[in-house]
């Protein structure tokens, strides 16, 4: 459950951004969570719900999650498959089982809406 500590880190950022922009209520938070970031989206949502209930600035804010794609390169034929779905089992071009993943590892705070 490292998602809880990541949500805590997010809340520190939201508090700082609210102070800098004279906001006193966060309406929505848009996050980008890569399919290879090691973050379980349900756990992140759970952490957000639990921690925001105790936070006057963030309580009731909508959490919007976007999942960007990762690219899987076949070691055999070099074909690159880009998808935000789960990892392909094999190369769709040559059927080889060995694919090198790149990208899709980050956790990004994209946008916030506040008033």
């Amino acid at each position: 459950m490292h998602e809880i500590s990541l949500v805590q880190g997010l809340f520190h950022q939201l508090e700082k951004l609210a102070r800098e922009n004279n906001g006193d209520k966060i309406i929505s938070v848009t996050m980008e969570i890569g399919p290879l970031s090691g973050i379980v989206i349900d756990s992140f949502r759970f952490g957000f719900d639990v921690l925001s209930a105790d936070n006057d600035l963030i309580r009731g804010a909508e959490l919007i999650i976007e999942v960007p794609p990762a690219t899987y390169t076949c070691v055999q034929c070099g074909h690159k498959e880009t998808t935000s779905d789960s990892r392909p089992d094999k190369c769709i071009k040559c059927g080889d089982l060995f694919l090198i993943p790149t990208g899709g590892e980050d956790l990004i705070l994209n946008r916030i809406e506040m008033e």
Binding site: Q13, L17, I108, L109, N110, R111, I112, E113, E115
Partner: peptide
């Protein structure tokens, strides 16, 4: 109605 504003951040939570 509310006077909300949207702020683009684009910061990685792993950046720190």
């Amino acid at each position: 109605h509310t006077h909300s504003r949207t702020i683009d951040v684009h910061t990685s939570l792993f950046a720190a």
